[in-house]
Amino acid sequence: MSEIPLTHILFVSTALFFIGMYGLFTRRNMITMLMAVELMLNSVNINFVAFNKYLFPENLDGVFFTIFIITIAAAEAAVAIAIIINLYRSHHSIDVEDATEMKW
């Protein structure tokens, strides 16, 4: 049977996390920033499932953490999109640089 080292999976998820972080830093479009956050959440999910499989294969805790992260991500996306729509209605733009009223 084939065996893949745990570190390979961790490298994949780390690379995904930092691709998402780069996107969060560089994009100014709110929708794309939200997509970058989803990417980061998914890389963390891979970590949970991989650690569950490799270190405690008889338990299910990592899988349940991932399921709860997915539910929280769904709720978060719904609220964030409501905020974005509201911002678009008042500013006619979803560029984060345009929403500066609360800047000091």
Binding site: P5, L6, T7, Y54, L60
Partner: peptide, 15 residues
């Protein structure tokens, strides 16, 4: 602790 840790991929029915 995690370097060199391997597991049987696509085995088992825990999920």
């Amino acid at each position: 602790e995690i370097v060199g840790k391997t597991a049987m991929i696509k085995e088992g029915s825990i999920g």
